[in-house]
């Protein structure tokens, strides 16, 4: 490049061949994939046991670990800009609020609603 090139251009050259891109090493991709397959096998395996109420939380925990691996590595969040991380992760805060309040509400009124459902005769006008 000649010396007259503008600042942005020379800045890119100094960052080497790949510019602003961060190619993932192949070993990292394969390791993440292997971990995801192992975790899938684990979640199938744990479903064979009767763990009662704990089961749904355990399977959700494993799913969340898998989701984190996908987000961090396959979706490159580990190299992403803080703004993008805040934007995307922010959506989960709103999902939590949404689910939390709806479930709280549904269960708050459960005692009022359920007796009407139990004897069907009562619901007929």
């Amino acid at each position: 490049m000649s010396t007259t090139s503008h600042a942005a251009g020379s800045e890119h050259d100094s960052q080497g061949h790949h510019g602003f891109s961060h190619p993932m090493p192949v070993w990292q991709l394969l390791a993440v994939f292997a971990a995801l397959i192992v975790l899938t096998a684990l979640t199938v395996f744990q479903s064979k046991f009767d763990l009662g109420n704990l089961e749904v939380w355990l399977s959700l925990f494993i799913a969340t670990v898998k989701a984190s691996l996908v987000i961090l590595f396959f979706m490159h969040m580990i190299h992403d800009k803080p703004l993008n991380v805040i934007v995307f992760m922010g959506s989960f805060i709103f999902v939590a609020l949404f689910l939390g309040f709806v479930l709280m509400d549904a269960h708050g009124y459960k005692d009022v609603v359920e007796p009407q459902e139990a004897p069907p005769a009562a619901t007929t006008p």
Binding site: V26, L29, L30
Partner: peptide, 9 residues
């Protein structure tokens, strides 16, 4: 997903 991530690479 693996092949997609590899494709980006």
């Amino acid at each position: 997903s693996l092949t997609m991530a590899w494709g980006v690479r």
